[in-house]
Computed example of a mutant assay.
Amino acid sequence: MEKALVVGASGGMGYSVVKELSSRGISVTAFARTRDKLEKLFGNDPNVTIYAGDLFKVEDLEEAAQGVDVIFQAANIPYSEWEMKLLVMMSNIIETAKKHSAKVAFVDNIYAYGRSTGTTVNERTPKNPHTKKGKLRLQVEELIKTSKVPALIAHFPDFYGPNAESSLLNYTLVNVIKNKKASYVGDQSIAREFIYTPDGAKAIVELSLNEEAYGQNWNIPAQEVISGEEIIKTIRDITDYQKGVSTVSKKMIQFLGIFNPQMREAVEMYYLNEEPVVLNGEKYEKLIGPIPHTCYREGLMKTMEYMKKQA
């Protein structure tokens, strides 16, 4: 790969994918809507070309994709827009890849798997989504697989890391950084996965460089589960934070949903805080090798250091 396009470059995983590609000397076009944010994130990187465009304008994508070998799809849109726009966005990316004979690497979540099986899920686990958003993600997967575009789909658990501003853990960490009373989404006693975005970026870039990876799904786990209580204890161990951390319950999100359409849409995904889906990464390890892994202590420390610099 000599040149790549990263769609959603100003988001959590997109940012780390751009950084990972650039660190390998690969020329990257960073695509997102807001030029100022792109300039702030990548303006000093000689390997990165900035393109401020609209995912829903195919001409913007086609112009940005000129000469690229792989398109990394790391963009997301608000939950409230998924039903109307998610498949349109994905179709635009697929059509752009076809026009430029580019491969595609999709950053995906775990929604399509549906409820937890009680054990780790692998790529052979039947997908049986019970939520509206899970069913939409499965439709996206079917769209990709019938497109005949060389594509790989990487399933990730929830993110945390540098610039992962929309993540659940960021919601907790942003107030820790301000030394204010913080909140944690979900039962603090339940263990679940959170992947450090630079680890996830390394994993999907490694897959994108291997021809055998295309035409398949890949699970990229965090390698460890951790409870909210353990996260908070780790935060206290590495900082002087002593404020209380309350729990954001499903009922609280339902109440906020009366006034906020985003919260209203988030309610159906709350089950992941109660019945975590944990990924099995054996397939990746057989093809590529060990999954990149940063322990939670180090990942949280680096994430908070990044956040402090941006404050």
Rank of each mutant, 00 (worst) to 15 (best):
G118Q: 09
A164C: 15
M90Y: 11
A74R: 00
K127H: 14
F156N: 02
P162L: 05
E62L: 01
S80A: 11
K148E: 14
V121S: 03
Y79W: 13
A112G: 08
F159E: 07
H155F: 07
I110T: 12
G118D: 10
G118I: 03
F72P: 06
M90I: 13
P126T: 08
F156Q: 10
I77N: 14
L143H: 06
L143R: 04
R137W: 03
Q139D: 12
P162N: 05
H100F: 10
S91I: 06
A151Q: 01
N128E: 14
I93C: 12
Q66E: 15
T146A: 10
L152P: 02
V68K: 02
E95H: 07
L61M: 00
F72T: 03
D69H: 15
T96V: 09
V140G: 10
Y113L: 07
L61C: 02
E142I: 00
D108G: 04
V121N: 03
E142H: 07
V121G: 08
F106H: 00
E62F: 06
L152Y: 06
T120M: 12
K132R: 15
P157Y: 04
T96G: 06
N128I: 14
S101E: 10
G114V: 06
D158M: 12
D60K: 14
G114Y: 03
K148L: 04
I110F: 01
E142W: 00
A65S: 14
I153Q: 07
A64G: 01
V140I: 15
N92G: 08
A97L: 06
S91K: 15
Q73I: 05
A64F: 12
A112V: 01
V88S: 04
V140M: 15
V104I: 14
K85C: 02
V140A: 15
T120Y: 11
